[in-house]
């Protein structure tokens, strides 16, 4: 299970990478992509859509199930990953790289403090599997 130390995580199995100018890149974790199985479709929001922390912003579908995507922080969608429409398998092969979902311009960067660090997310996963 790959859990990069420089990322923040949520209990909904998303990761956040803090970039410049309050921008936060978001994707789903290695654990999430493995649990879903082969991803065949990703529904993403439009650039400019306003997201509220804890609200849904899209769906990830595998051959066996559908999962909602939950916004880890509030803000405005600044970018969506254009590769996923034709190559959703990137979510499986590179969950922390080319398989990213959206970039959010954070409304309140201090919300990042509500997220888990790698150790906290690992502890959460361990608790779930017990």
């Amino acid at each position: 299970m790959d859990l990069p130390e420089d990322l923040h995580y949520t209990q909904e199995h998303e990761w956040c990478r803090i970039e410049v100018d309050s921008k936060v890149r978001v994707g789903i974790t290695d654990y999430a992509q493995d649990a879903l199985g082969d991803v065949v479709y990703v529904q993403l929001p439009e650039v400019g859509d306003v997201l509220r922390a804890g609200g849904t912003f899209g769906e990830v579908e595998s051959t066996k199930s559908v999962s909602d995507l939950w916004a880890p922080i509030s803000g405005t969608v600044a970018e969506v990953n254009p590769l996923l429409q034709d190559a959703p398998e990137l979510v499986n092969s590179a969950p922390y790289g080319d398989g990213w979902m959206v970039v959010i311009e954070a409304a309140d960067p201090s919300e990042v403090a509500n997220l888990l660090d790698a150790a906290g997310y690992r502890a959460y996963l361990d608790a779930q599997s017990e």
Binding site: G37, D38, V40, E89
Partner: peptide, 9 residues
Amino acid sequence: PVQYRGVLA
């Protein structure tokens, strides 16, 4: 077994 390596493979 629902899958070994992956459904698509």
